[in-house]
Amino acid sequence: MLETSFLNNIGLEHYLVLSAVLFSLGMAGVLLRRNLIVLMMSIELMLNAINISFVAFSKFNNNPEGQVMVFFVMTIAAAEAAVGLALAVSIFKRFKEVNIRFFEHLKG
């Protein structure tokens, strides 16, 4: 019986767990991948995970503040993507490569 109630009653914790798993996937992407653009995509993934939990909290507490927060997160994510892509394009122009292994000599 416990199994079916877990499957049937979709509550706040379902969305939170989904959000946590998505966030972890994004984090794994940031840690494991070496392509600059894939790194940025993983960051977008993490931001999306956060958005899910914001909206879930907003619904289950009847508080619209959570959705307003999602707006702000989305705007900042779009801005971040624009700047990041511009940087990636200029790095690609310079090094002909966007793998972070190839510009380690930016250090010092």
Binding site: V21, L22, L25, G26, G29, R33, V38, M41, S42, L45
Partner: peptide
């Protein structure tokens, strides 16, 4: 989740 997995 499947598409997020595929991303990384």
């Amino acid at each position: 989740l499947v598409s997020a997995m595929s991303v990384i």
